[in-house]
Structure formats: structure tokens, C-alpha cells
Design a protein around this nucleic acid. Structure first.
Length: 582
DNA sequence: GCCGTTTTCGGCCCGACTGTTTTCAGTCG
């Protein structure tokens, strides 16, 4: 059982106890906090259990540690067994319908015998919900609409970052055109740059609320207004995403931005700390408990300062130790000096080498690495050894033009199903920097695919292991192209990369983001170095770098551990040194 | 159920909006 599966069981356990309605609500909070921690863990839960270190996980005490142990050894524990016997799974699934919480689910299950989302829909359509306690005709209609919307959106209830980011900033630009708007920002998981986004949260400060709300709900992207109050409105876009807008008075900006950026768990920890310092914190201000005096924070930074904390960047606000560990200066986009994965018209890209070089120069880069595909990847027009030699001549010619950016020759070399590489050692030695990656036979079983990758990582000519897991995460409309990553032993991969000085890539392409944040953090803890590359297939895609930087920041990366922040001579020395060492 | 520069018991973050209500419960974040 992996981390995500164990996490899910604790979420479901809390849901079942919630429906049952007998358990102390703080116990539910405890189970949910642990579920959240498990989902955010950067090490394998089985390894932690074997080491007897379960209680080192925040929120895990004696009782939950025993439950996890039992779960990993036997697949269940007694409380879970009992609840699963007593509560049909369809009843729990009703909680996924918006406006259906534990109280309503329990009431409809026990009083009306409704045991699934399908039965809930039938009952609502038959008019059998209205009239029951707390339910009227409006809620009945809403539940039908909610079920329909859920069906329409399908399994993908979260929006990939690469889609949500431009969408949200487009809306924000429109809101900033409203004359009375003073400041505006994205908030929530989007500001934290999570790889997928639930709702898009926007925050605006203005002295007057109504004109902003009016502009918001009338934006052309809005399909439906879900809620509209004096400080907050929620809408659904034609593209399906829910967007929440909060409008606050200018003096509240700092507290409000902090509050609406979350995460929820981060905020709970922060407010606990505030209480210990004698303040109550809400989205408007810090309030001194002893005399009720409000302390306004015009800037978000002041909230942390007044509580005696360093500023915690949004990407770290996940209750993953950010209050207990020293917060380093994280890498920034401006630290990036070059891009070390891109494709050109030589293989499956649509931009020439020279155009890529010019695009990189425009972004202020000092160097780029051309990494067209190797020969066996036929669908991408991968390069034969002969064409690779011809490409070198073109690169030399581009460098001779003095564009102000150094073009290096590399390749994205396929790690074939048997673990061998797609070019001879002699060919690899002729390249400046070599990437190796998986595109085929991703579904090999755990040990086989891990060994295959380990042999590539240990090849002295391989400098970078690119998009390590191979996962793809397309938006819902294109979900058929999505796929989970290979079943790799990441601990073994990280250990081998450290040993061989092989660099691990964070692929900044929005449908990859691979390594993800948790893997990046673990890789850094183990001692590996990273590279952030766009994998651009045209010069516009070089602009995806900021997504990769965000993932690195979420992994607590400093610039020094990311090799494409280094000057070129340091980078080249490093990769040649690693060749010699191995 | 967890936890402790208010430690082994008594606390546990804080508020907005809707619908169904005559003052609030339920849901959501």
C-alpha cells in the first residue's frame, strides 16, 4: 500500500465517522490531518513503518501509528472493518456531491434509505427530498444540478496548473481594469503553485465592493453565479472551474492575502502560534486578545513579522515543516541562466536552432542545450548518428553568429527496454551534455524498470536523467493522453544519482512537472542536484520555465542546487568531472 | 486523537454564504 492509498483510507475513515456522528469532532480533525500529512510525505510510508518512525509524522500518535501498522501489514484495522461493514460505500460517496455534508447524508440514508449518488439523484428528481428536515425545493434543485455538474466534469475534479494559471491571470487583468480596484492577486492553491488546482481564488482590495462584484459576475467567461454576498462571490466558468472572489478593504490586504493563500493546515498552525503570542488572527487583522486592539497588516510579510516568524513563501505553506525548519532563500526565475532541454525542427520541434537561441537570449539566458530525440524514437524523427554529426555543424554555425547565447549540443537519449542506450558511447562522448529518459515500455514491472533506469544513471556519459517518472497529466478535455509514471523505486534512483553525480530534471512542461515537488524535496535531502528544463518544442514554450521553478521552490530548492543557475564553465566542469569519476 | 517555552489533562482556528429558518444549521474553505 502506498502513501496515497493510506492517506485516502484515513480521509474515508474520517468521512465515515463524520456520517456516523458519534465520534468527538477533534478525533476527525486528527484523522484528517494525518491523511493530509501522508499525502504530503516525501518518503515511502512502508519504509518509515519498518524503521519504527511512524510517530515522527506530525499528528501521528500511539493510536494512529497502530492503525497504520495494522493497515500496512494486514490491509485493514478493526475500526475500519466495523465502519466498512456498517456504512455502504455509496453513502460515503454522496459526500462528494457539493452541498451534501455528513448531516444530510446520514439523514437521507437512515430516514429515506438512500444509499448512493444514483439513488440521491432519483429521489431528488422525484421530488422526494423537499420537505425533509432542512431541505426545501431550492436545495433539491441544487443537488440535481450539482450531480449533473459532477458527472459532466468527470473524474478530473482538479484543473492542471498549466491551465489554471493563464485562466486566473486573464480574469485578474480584467478585474484590475475596474477603476476603483487598488490591488489584486491570485490566492489559494494557485498562488502556492500546486500542480493541480481545485477552485481558483482571487483577492481584490477596493474601498467599494459592489462595482467589483458586478464586474466579476458579468465577465464573459462566467457561466453561472453560485453565490453572491457582500464580500465574496463564487462563479462557475464555461470551462467548468469554480472561481471565488473576495473583495476586502485596503487596510486588510496583508492579513487577507495570507489567509486566502492557505493552505488550510498552514493557517491552522499559524493561528495557533498567533494565540500563543497573544493574538487572534483572521482574514482582516491580528487582534490583541488582552484588549481587543486590531493590528492591521498592509503587507502580507507583516503578518509573519508580527508573529516573530520569517516570511514563508507561498509555495512552502503546506504544513510540511515550514514552521520548524529554517526557510532558505528559494530559487527564483531570475536565477536561471540557461535551458537544458529543448527540441528543434531536427526532430519533433517546430522551431529552428537559431530561433531557439534568439528566444533564449530574449529571456536573458547565457546558454542552451539542444536535445533532440535519439534514433529509436521514430515517431519523433529521432536523429541517426549521421544526422547528429550534421546538426553539430549547424550549431557551430549558429554560435559563429555571436547571438550572445552559447548553444550546446546534447541529445535526449532513449533508455531502451533492455536498459541500453540509443547511441554508442562514442556518440555520447561527442555531445556536450547528455540527457537520458524513458518514453517506451513504461509499464514494465517495478524491479525491471528500476534496474533499467539505474543502469542508465550509472552510465558515465549520462549527465541528466530527464522527466524521471515519465508521467503525463493532460487537462480533462484531453485526458486520454494522460498516464501515470513508471513504477520506479525512487529511493534507489536518488541514491544512484547521488553516487554517480547524475542530475535529476524537473521538467517544467505543464503536463509533466516531473519530478514533482515531493520527489524534488526528497532528492535534495538525499544530496542530489537538480536541473529545471522546459522541454520546449518551440520558442514560446521556453516561457514555461516558471512552472518548473515553482515546483523546485515547493521542493525547498535553493539556486545553488539547481545546475542551470550556474555559470556555464562551472556546469561544464561538473558534467565532465562526473564523467571522469564514474 | 494529539499534544505541551501555559506538558500528561484540557484544550484544540475562524469566518462567509445559502436555505430554511423565526434565530440558526449545514456546508465550505
Amino acid at each position: 500500500m502506498n502513501n496515497q492509498e493510506v492517506s485516502k483510507i484515513f480521509f474515508t475513515l474520517a468521512d465515515m465517522l463524520d456520517i456516523e456522528g458519534k465520534e468527538n469532532r477533534f478525533a476527525l480533525i486528527a484523522y484528517r490531518r494525518v491523511a493530509e500529512q501522508l499525502a504530503n510525505l516525501d518518503r515511502d510510508i512502508n519504509a518509515i513503518a519498518q524503521a519504527g518512525e511512524l510517530r515522527s509524522i506530525a499528528g501521528v500518535g500511539q493510536a494512529i501509528a497502530e492503525k497504520i501498522d495494522s493497515l500496512l501489514k494486514t490491509g485493514s484495522f478493526s475500526l475500519l472493518d466495523r465502519l466498512q461493514r456498517e456504512i455502504p460505500i455509496g453513502v460515503v460517496q454522496m459526500l462528494a456531491v457539493p452541498d451534501m455534508g455528513p448531516k444530510r447524508v446520514k439523514m437521507l440514508w437512515q430516514d429515506a434509505g438512500i444509499q448512493s449518488v444514483e439513488q440521491l439523484e432519483q429521489a431528488a428528481r422525484a421530488g422526494k427530498l423537499a420537505g425533509r428536515p432542512g431541505l426545501g425545493p431550492k436545495m433539491e434543485a441544487k443537488i440535481i444540478a450539482n450531480i449533473e455538474a459532477t458527472k459532466k466534469r468527470g473524474a478530473a475534479d482538479r484543473t492542471p496548473l498549466g491551465l489554471a494559471y493563464p485562466l486566473a491571470h486573464g480574469l485578474l487583468r480584467k478585474l484590475m481594469e475596474v477603476p476603483i480596484v487598488q490591488r489584486a492577486s491570485v490566492a489559494g492553491s494557485l498562488r502556492r503553485m500546486k500542480e493541480t488546482i481545485g477552485d481558483i481564488d482571487l483577492l481584490v482590495s477596493a474601498n467599494e465592493v459592489e462595482p467589483v462584484m458586478e464586474a466579476f459576475v458579468n465577465l464573459p467567461q462566467v457561466a453561472e453565479v453560485i453565490a453572491r454576498g457582500p464580500t465574496k462571490s463564487s462563479v462557475r466558468l464555461h470551462t467548468g472551474q469554480q472561481v471565488d472572489l473576495r473583495v476586502i478593504q485596503p487596510p486588510h490586504w496583508g492579513a487577507a492575502l495570507q489567509y486566502f493563500t492557505g493552505s488550510k493546515d498552514h493557517n491552522v498552525r499559524l493561528r495557533e502560534r498567533a494565540l500563543k503570542k497573544g493574538y487572534s488572527l483572521n482574514e482582516y487583522s491580528l487582534t490583541r486578545v488582552k484588549d481587543g486592539k486590531d493590528v492591521f497588516c498592509h503587507e502580507e510579510r507583516e503578518v509573519y513579522e508580527k508573529l516573530g516568524l520569517p516570511f514563508i513563501p507561498p509555495e512552502l505553506r503546506e504544513d510540511r515543516g515550514e514552521f520548524d525548519r529554517a526557510v532558505p532563500r528559494l530559487i527564483e526565475l531570475a536565477d536561471i541562466r540557461g535551458d537544458l532541454q529543448m527540441h528543434t525542427t531536427w526532430s519533433d520541434g517546430s522551431t529552428s536552432i537559431e530561433e531557439m537561441a534568439r528566444g533564449a537570449k530574449a529571456r536573458g539566458y547565457e546558454y542552451i542545450l539542444i536535445t533532440d530525440h535519439s534514433q529509436s524514437l521514430g515517431v519523433t524523427n529521432g536523429l541517426s548518428p549521421e544526422r547528429l554529426k550534421q546538426q553539430r555543424k549547424e550549431i557551430d554555425a549558429v554560435n559563429a553568429k555571436g547571438l550572445g547565447v552559447r548553444v550546446l549540443q546534447g541529445a535526449e537519449v532513449e533508455i531502451k527496454a533492455d536498459g541500453t542506450l540509443d547511441y554508442s558511447d562514442e556518440m555520447l562522448a561527442s555531445l556536450d551534455i547528455v540527457l537520458a529518459s524513458l518514453h517506451t515500455s513504461l509499464r514494465q514491472e517495478h524491479d525491471k524498470v528500476t534496474q533499467r533506469v539505474l543502469s542508465a544513471i550509472r552510465n558515465p556519459h549520462v549527465d541528466i536523467f530527464a522527466h524521471p517518472t515519465g508521467r503525463l497529466n493532460y487537462e480533462a478535455s484531453d485526458a486520454s493522453k494522460s498516464r501515470p509514471g513508471a513504477d520506479l523505486d525512487m529511493e534507489a534512483i536518488f541514491a544512484a544519482c547521488k553516487e554517480a553525480s547524475t542530475i535529476l530534471e524537473i521538467n517544467a512542461s505543464p503536463e509533466r512537472l516531473d519530478l514533482n515537488d515531493l520527489n524534488a524535496r526528497r532528492a535534495l535531502d538525499v544530496g542530489c542536484n537538480l536541473v529545471i528544463s522546459t522541454d520546449a518544442h518551440n520558442s514560446a514554450m521556453l516561457g514555461n520555465m516558471h512552472y518548473g521553478v515553482a515546483i523546485a521552490r515547493r521542493g525547498w530548492a535553493t539556486a545553488d542546487r539547481v545546475v542551470n543557475t550556474w555559470p556555464l564553465n562551472r556546469l561544464l566542469k561538473y558534467v565532465s568531472r562526473s564523467n571522469l569519476e564514474s
